[in-house]
Design a protein around this nucleic acid. Structure first.
Lengths: 144, 144
DNA sequence: GATGAGCTTGACGTTTACGTAAAGTAGACC
DNA sequence: GGTCTACTTTACGTAAACGTCAAGCTCATC
C-alpha cells in the first residue's frame, strides 16, 4: 500500500534489470530507456548496464498510470518533480506548488465528470442494443 | 440533459458554421475538418461550405470528451459508430457489441482507479508541502 | 572459442493529431 | 467594383512517443 517515491531509507533492497521491469509492466526496454531520456527515470549504473530500484519501479508505475489517463510525459514529469521536491523551497515556492496541486485536482475532477458522462452514453447504447436483441429473440421464438 | 447522437427527429433546428463551432469548443476549424476527415463528423454541405447540426455538435462534444480521457481518434470513432449503429445488426453482431461495451466499461473503471490513486498521491504531496510550509511559518514568527 | 541471451548506444522510421502557409471562392458592405 | 470576412482545398511541416534496425559489449554455457 504505502509506496513512496522518496527514498524510504532502505526498506526493499530488490533491484531489477531493464528486461525484468519491461516484462512486469508489459512495455519494451526501448520505452523504459526513452522515459529515462525524458527525465522520468534515473537508474543506477553498474558498468554500463542499468540497475533499477524500488524507486524506479514506483516511478514507472506512476508514469504508466498517467499515460492511461492521457497525460503527456512532460505533465507526468511535472508530477514526479512535485513528488520529489515537495518539502524544500521557500514560502513562495511552496504556495505556488499548492496552487499547482489544486489545478491538477481540478483536472482530475473534470476527468471524473467525463468518465461519468461516457458511462451514461454507454448505458444508452446498451439499452438500445438490448432492446433490439430482445425484439430479435422475440421474433425468433414467435417464428419457431 | 438528454442529448442524443441519433437524429432525435427534429427538435432543435439550429445550425452552425465551422467557425462558430470552433469558438464554442475552443478548437480551430482545422481540427474540425480533420475530425471530419477521420470519420468523426459528417456535416451537411451547402454549395461547398459545411453546415453543422445538433448531431454534429454532440459528436464533437463527445470527441473532445474522449480526448480529455486520452482516447485516440480511432477509439472515439469506434464509440461513435457503436452509438450510430446500435439498433441494427443480427444477433451475433448485437452480442459482439455488448461485449465491446463491457470492455469499454472496464477501461473506464480502470481509469477511475487510476484517478483515485493519483488523487491520493497528490494528497501525499500536499501533506508534505503543508508541513514544510507550517514549519517555515513557525520559524518566521519565532524569529520575529 | 564459438554461440546465445541480454544488455548497450546510435540513428533513422512511423503514427497520431494536428499547425501553418498558399491560393482560390463566395457573399456582405461601402 | 473593390475590399473584408469567412469559408474552401492542397500540401508540406511538426511534436510526441515510441518502433526498428544495426553494431558492439559481456557473461555463461556447450
Amino acid at each position: 500500500m504505502s509506496e513512496t517515491l522518496s527514498p524510504a531509507p532502505s526498506r526493499e533492497r530488490r533491484t531489477y534489470s531493464i528486461g525484468e521491469l519491461a516484462r512486469r509492466f508489459e512495455v519494451t526496454p526501448r520505452t523504459i530507456r526513452f522515459y529515462e531520456q525524458e527525465g522520468l527515470l534515473d537508474p543506477e549504473r553498474r558498468g554500463q548496464t542499468r540497475v533499477y530500484h524500488e524507486k524506479d519501479r514506483v516511478r514507472l508505475s506512476l508514469t504508466l498510470r498517467g499515460k492511461r489517463l492521457g497525460f503527456s510525459l512532460a505533465e507526468i514529469r511535472e508530477v514526479i518533480q512535485l513528488y520529489d521536491h515537495a518539502p524544500d523551497g521557500d514560502e513562495r515556492q511552496l504556495r505556488r506548488m499548492l496552487d499547482i496541486l489544486a489545478e491538477k485536482r481540478r483536472g482530475l475532477e473534470r476527468q471524473l465528470e467525463d468518465i461519468r458522462a461516457l458511462q451514461h452514453e454507454l448505458d444508452d447504447v446498451e439499452d438500445r442494443c438490448r432492446e433490439s436483441l430482445d425484439a430479435l429473440l422475440a421474433r425468433h421464438s414467435r417464428d419457431a
